[in-house]
Design a protein around this nucleic acid. Structure first.
Lengths: 127, 127
DNA sequence: ACACGTGTCACATGCTACATGTGACACGTG
DNA sequence: CACGTGTCACATGTAGCATGTGACACGTGT
């Protein structure tokens, strides 16, 4: 059994869905820093996807610092990353803009959006 | 000249970029309800993209209610849509969750995220 | 009645991303 | 030394995207 929940759905790339599921599991405390992360082959077998696909997803998580590799040993959940750089913040601002545009397009008010943000924030509380 | 700004960039589908540019123009007041929207062929020529691609983007905007079609006449900016349905809100909640996950992943605090939201909100103020 | 511009549609083609298939190598553990 | 681990380099099939090409229905203006 994998240490994070995931139901593969069509419409989005499988590797992206795996990345997102792991991110959610990490920030919600389901995957704790230092704990063992399943091997590429284990993930591929559990999710019934190809090892290359699992490896691609894990590679992204490595690059973002959520996972750490110990060659010959395996992969573990990394320590929490540091504060974002200016470049990362700029990219993130683009995502914020996208959400605001969609919110305004749906005739939401600012306080309604803020409330939805806070609700999701608390739902994903680190345990 | 098109009534909305857009610089085509690689990495994202062209049709999606057109849709997003129009959405931003509408909510920022650059495109006012009832005003004339450029024809499929005009958009394709200005942006140097294929008419089919422009038509695809406009088709999405039609479906979402941002544009209205008058056969034989042309396309105009639609009146502002009504309040979102429960189904639309659920889809939008998924987008909110995505942003919150990315924010937590970057070690942002809730108040920092809320501040970014409010800043973008005011930047896209309807004139 | 007619030409024109409008939106709309149905194919086909080339390109790219994605997922899978297959095989191989370096590393550390036991 | 065998084993499991991560990693990599190809190839293959599928799907989405953008473009190419041609065509039709509609309303306006002449």
């Amino acid at each position: 059994m994998l240490p994070f929940p995931l139901q593969i759905q069509p419409g989005l790339p499988i590797s992206e869905q795996v990345v997102y599921a792991v991110k959610k599991a990490v920030i919600s405390g389901l995957l704790k820093p230092g704990s063992r992360f399943p091997s590429v082959r284990a993930v591929s077998q559990e999710l019934r996807i190809h090892p290359n696909t699992a490896h691609k997803a894990i590679g992204v998580l490595i690059d973002e610092g959520l996972l750490e590799v110990h060659p010959g040993i395996g992969t573990v959940v990394g320590q929490l990353p540091s504060a974002p750089s200016a470049k990362e913040l700029k990219l993130f601002a683009g995502q914020v803009e996208r959400l605001v545009v969609e919110a305004k397009n749906r005739r939401l008010r600012l306080d309604e959006l803020q409330a939805m943000i806070e609700r999701q924030w608390n739902r994903l509380t680190t345990r």
